[in-house]
Structures are given as C-alpha cells and as structure tokens.
C-alpha cells in the first residue's frame, strides 16, 4: 500500500491555507491514502481542521512542547521517524516547507523536489526553474519521494471530509542547538492573508513612500483585498517583507491582482502569473507589467485610485 503524508503548516491554533492546497496536489498522485501530520505543542484544534480536508484518511497528531514553534531542526527528526510508513511526503512550498523538507531529505539520504506544479505520475513531476521562465519535468529515483508543493498551482480541497485523528508518540532525540526567540508580524489586522486572498492590491516603487502606501491599504480595504508589494517597495522600506510577491517572495494566485506603480521585473511576474485577472496601473506606458496585464491603464496611480474609490 502506498500512502502520502502531507505536513500541515499551522500557527498552533489555525491550519494554514497552504495545507489544503498541498493536499490537492497529493490527491493527484493516485495513491491508496492521504494522511496529514500535525506537529504541535497542543494540536487538537489544528488536527480537527485538518480532519475536515477532503480526501484525507488519517490525521497523525504528534504533540510535544518543543513543537510550540516550527523549528526545522526540531521537526525534521520527527518527520523522518514518521516517513517510513509512506511512499511520499509533501509540504507546501512556503517558507515553512522550504526550510523543513530539504533537511528531512538530507537525513533520509534522498533528493527533494521543490515547487511541484503538476503531477504527471506518482514519480514524474513538473516544476518551475529560472523564475518560472522554464519548466522542467523530473523523475524521482526509486524510493521515498519528498517534495514541496507550489501552492498557487492548486486550488484548496473542500472541507467536507471526516478523517480519523490518531495521536502518535515519536521518541527521537532532538537537538538543543537551535532556539526560537520570537516573531515580529506586520500586523495586517483583519486583511485577508495574501496567499489565500481572492483579490490582491499591490504597490511598487512608484508608490513613493511608506506614507503613500496608505492609499494602497485604503483601496484594498474597500475591495476586501490582501496587500502585496514588489521587492523594490519592500527594499525601500515602504512596507514589511511579508507582503513581497515574486520569485523569492510569495507566489500567489488571486482571482484579481491589481498592480500600482509596479514596473514588472521578471522576478515579480513569477509571483503573479497564475492570477485570474491582472490589472496594471503605471505612468510608464512601456513598463513590462503591461505585457502580462489583462487590463492596463497608463496614468498616475494616486489619481486612478482616487477615481476608483469614488466609482466603487
């Protein structure tokens, strides 16, 4: 029997939306069962959310006080212990999964396939390279297959499942060399999560300053949208790093993406090419963003936003 284990991403109380997308990828493998591993200090709430994901057979709950925060060096040996029951282990290709899975792969002596965007068979996968400007089709060698899932390539599975929750003791020696010190979030408050939002309003260097970004936030709030940014805007200190969209930031697939004052470097475009509709507003008619935008408007972003707000 071949089974896939999906590693849940969560913050201790909420299952991250990327997990349901990774399950969607897992369901394409055509295996006998999909399980989810929840590693947490107290993971009962997260396990219950995971048990609702369609297609999942068992939620494997591993509770240990050291799992209070997701530290790869501590999670990896536990996942390694769970992996022996499975033919595949997947995690979302978020900073959580990217940090964790290669370490697990090294421990197990197998390669890891990053950013799976298409499952051709249980052993053959497509993944992007060169910031998404090329796609390679790779075949994994015999044995356990480890991978991360490019979440923008998969819609989340439904939440009408009823998996069994099974608590598991994992007794492995864990290192003491790595200590979690804290997390500083940008406190985007009630705004939708960038990676899950149906609409995203994004600003670039053209916004000009941290103060000016308030117009981006204002429009986003009016639309119920998440807020994104280009690398240039983050580098300039207009907005915190967790808003960055692109090759090395977040890869997103909202229904509507509105880019204001973003020129459209290929690294940024790599993060938005799965968006349903792209709207670009830029004062430079030759900006590369217009080459991928469904609707382009050449003009001053502040005037356009003001008019937009009135028209909404």
């Amino acid at each position: 029997m071949s089974k896939v284990l999906v590693i849940a991403e969560h913050d201790g109380s909420q299952l991250n939306g990327s997990t349901a997308r990774a399950v969607a990828c897992a369901s394409q493998l055509g295996l006998d069962a999909i399980d989810i591993a929840v590693l947490a200090a107290d993971g009962s709430a997260v396990a219950e959310q995971a048990a609702k994901l369609a297609g999942v057979a068992t939620v494997v709950l591993v509770q240990n006080p050291v799992n209070e925060n997701a530290v790869a060096a501590l999670l990896a040996p536990q996942i390694e212990a769970l992996a022996s029951d499975y033919s595949h282990v997947l995690a979302p290709s978020t900073t959580f999964g990217k940090d964790l899975m290669p370490r697990v792969a090294a421990h197990l002596g197998v390669p890891q396939i990053s950013d799976i965007m298409r499952v051709e068979s249980a052993t053959v996968f497509d993944r992007p390279v060169y910031a998404g400007n090329a796609v390679i089709t790779v075949e994994a060698p015999e044995g356990l297959i480890l991978g991360t899932v490019r979440t923008a390539s998969y819609p989340a599975v439904a939440q009408d499942g009823a998996a069994t929750i099974e608590t598991r003791e994992v007794s492995v020696t864990l290192p003491t060399h790595t200590r979690y010190e804290g997390l500083k979030t940008s406190g985007s408050g009630d705004r939708p999560d960038l990676q899950a939002a149906a609409k995203v309003v994004s600003g670039g260097r053209g916004v000009g300053s941290e103060e000016n970004f308030s117009v981006i936030y204002g429009l986003a709030d009016k639309l119920g949208a998440g807020v994104g940014a280009s690398r240039a805007a983050v580098d300039a200190g207009f907005i915190p790093n967790d808003h960055q969209v692109g090759q090395t930031g977040k890869i997103i697939a909202p229904e509507l993406y509105m880019a204001f004052g973003i020129s459209g470097a290929i690294q940024h475009l790599a993060g938005i090419k799965d968006a349903g509709t792209i709207v670009a507003v830029n004062k430079d008619a030759d900006a590369p963003i217009f080459e991928v935008a469904d609707y382009g408007l050449v003009g001053d972003l502040f005037e356009v936003i003001e008019e937009l707000e009135k028209a909404l």
Binding site: T95, H177, Y180, E181, G182, L183, K184, T185, D242
Partner: peptide, 16 residues
C-alpha cells in the same frame, strides 16, 4: 542571532 524573513513576518532564531 539570526532574523529570518518568513511568510508571517520576521522570525528570530538563536543558534549555536
């Protein structure tokens, strides 16, 4: 002491 850019913000780890 390393500050890490992760999806939810800036995380700090202390490593030996």
């Amino acid at each position: 002491q390393v500050t890490r850019e992760i999806d939810s913000g800036l995380e700090t780890l202390s490593v030996d």
